[in-house]
Computed example of a mutant assay.
Amino acid sequence: MSEHDLRVGVVGAGMMGSDHAARIHQRLSGARLVAVGDPDIERAERAVDGVDGARAEADPLAVIESSDVDAVVIASPGPAHEPLLLAAVQRGIPVLCEKPLTPDPVSSLRVVQAEAARGRKLIQIGFMRRFDPEYLNLKELLDAGELGRTLLLHCAHRNPARPPGFSTEMLITDSVVHEFDTTRWLLDAEITAVSVRQQGLVASTEAGVPQIVTIETAGGVLVDVEIFVNCGFGYQVRCEAVCENGTALVGGDSGMRTHHAGRWGGGVAADFRPRFRQAFDAEFQHWVRAARSGGIDGASAWDGYAAAAACEAGVAAQRSGSRTEVTLVERPELYA
Rank of each mutant, 00 (worst) to 15 (best):
G220T: 09
A22I: 05
A193W: 14
S167G: 00
V202W: 13
R331D: 08
T183H: 05
D271F: 05
E283D: 13
A248E: 01
Y135A: 09
R184P: 00
A144T: 12
D68C: 05
V95W: 14
A279P: 01
V223R: 13
L28G: 01
A88V: 09
D132N: 14
V194Q: 08
V51Q: 07
G232E: 03
G266C: 05
P210Y: 04
P160G: 00
R263M: 01
T173M: 00
F127E: 02
T247F: 06
V326Q: 03
Q113V: 07
I172G: 00
A58H: 06
G251N: 02
A291K: 12
V229D: 09
G126I: 12
R129Y: 11
V106E: 07
D132G: 11
A291N: 05
D52C: 11
V48Q: 02
V326N: 03
V194K: 07
E82T: 12
Q198D: 03
A218R: 10
G266D: 00
K121L: 15
F166G: 00
Q113H: 12
L171V: 00
Y135Q: 09
V237K: 08
G126D: 02
A58P: 01
R110K: 14
Q318M: 14
A71M: 03
H81W: 12
L138P: 08
L249D: 03
F280P: 11
I64G: 03
R110W: 07
A307W: 13
P163C: 04
D271I: 03
D253F: 09
W287N: 08
V111R: 09
V95K: 13
M1K: 14
E206M: 02
A308E: 05
R23C: 01
R130G: 13
V223W: 12
P100V: 11
I215A: 07
D52P: 06
D49K: 15
R91E: 06
P39F: 11
Q90E: 15
V112R: 10
E3Q: 15
D271N: 05
D59S: 02
R162S: 03
G321R: 12
D143V: 10
R197Y: 07
G255Q: 05
V202E: 14
V89N: 13
G37H: 02
V326F: 04
